[in-house]
């Protein structure tokens, strides 16, 4: 325990430094509204992608319904902050969004997690569509027209803090007894069961945790953009998040961070090209997938521990151990 505080401190310093860097650049006027917008989008996408990576990359369950859980969070915040127009109301709405998405994730997960591979993907895709269509047809959500004038509580700093929090929770979960059980299911489900690992339970916990973080991202999204419509949370959004995860590497949180940031910057940089932007974006994706089929980072994880212990055991693989 005592030897670990050093690495934890490194991460803390990194997080605080990042915060101050952005803050200073913001005050100095280097970061304008356009760049701020880009940063917040990247932040929200990181939360979504890290959560999805937990489900797909670590527990090995191919979910295509992530946007559905995002919608639950977004609408919880959108609806609640209109009557409770305070910061307290905003945080309460995040909590409500998380609780709702946990309940829905359980309802969806318990029957569908028996399915494997493609079947599970289709089932979750269907579940997300159901969520979207229900929202599309309810009065309280204002149907297809969506919600406007949602008060803005999610500024860049709130998003930054939530990126840190959700990542810490996810990464710490992965590097625990429970996380190992989750990973063992991805590696070999039959062997995991033979070791007494309750596969259904752990698959479900990863799925639920992923859904909860997606709801947080949805809340931030609604509050930052101040406008939400149901069509945002369709299958294309789920696929977008999937792209970040696959590109970064299934099973690498570091990869998810890098890929999401890279694509976020690329997307903003190509903004001036109009429709052509999507062509360049797609070409970039194809190139990366050809040369790095396992994603940019594969399963590699950045770790202060490895950096600081200076490889005393030759070429031993500490493979992503204790990266936080």
């Amino acid at each position: 325990m005592k030897k670990n505080w050093k690495y934890n401190l490194c991460w803390l310093i990194l997080m605080v430094a990042g915060f101050y860097l952005i803050n200073t650049l913001m005050l100095a006027g280097v970061i304008n509204t356009f760049i701020e917008n880009m940063l917040v989008t990247i932040g929200i996408n990181i939360i979504l992608a890290v959560g999805l990576n937990l489900v797909i990359g670590f527990s090995g369950q191919f979910s295509l319904g992530h946007a559905g859980f995002m919608a639950l969070g977004a609408y919880a915040t959108g609806i609640m902050t209109q009557t409770m127009n305070t910061a307290g109301g905003f945080y309460l709405s995040i909590l409500v969004g998380v609780v709702i998405s946990i309940v829905v994730a359980l309802l969806v997960g318990i029957p569908t997690l028996r399915l494997h591979g493609d079947y599970f993907a289709i089932a979750t895709m269907g579940a997300a569509e159901i969520i979207r269509i229900v929202i599309n047809n309810m009065k309280i959500t204002n149907g297809a027209a969506g919600l406007f004038n949602i008060p803005q509580f999610a500024t860049w700093d709130v998003v930054y803090i939530f990126v840190c929090l959700t990542t810490i929770v996810t990464v710490n979960f992965i590097h625990s007894r429970d996380g190992r059980a989750v990973i063992s299911i991805r590696e070999n489900e039959i062997a995991a069961e033979a070791m007494g690992v309750n596969t259904t339970k752990w698959k479900l916990s990863a799925f639920v945790l992923g859904a909860a973080t997606a709801a947080i991202a949805g809340s931030l999204y609604a509050s930052y953009l101040q406008t939400i419509v149901p069509s945002t949370f369709g299958i294309m959004e789920s696929i977008n998040i999937l792209i970040f995860v696959v590109l970064g590497g299934l099973g690498s949180i570091t990869g998810t961070f890098v890929a999401t940031t890279l694509l976020g910057v690329l997307d903003a940089a190509l903004q001036s090209l109009g429709v052509l932007r999507m062509v360049f974006y797609a070409v970039a994706l194809i190139i990366i997938m050809i040369f790095k089929p396992g994603g940019l980072f594969g399963k590699w994880e950045f770790s202060f521990k490895r950096l600081l212990t200076k490889k005393q055991d030759g070429d031993m693989k500490e493979a992503g151990k204790e990266s936080k």
């Binding site: 007894r177 190992r180 059980a181 990973i183 063992s184 590696e187 070999n188 062997a191 995991a192 070791m195 007494g196 690992v197 399963k299 693989k317 493979a319």
Partner: peptide, 16 residues
Amino acid sequence: LFSKLSVLENVLIALT
């Protein structure tokens, strides 16, 4: 085996 995980992790999972 959990072939992509380390030998140590394989045993740790069995201790779950």
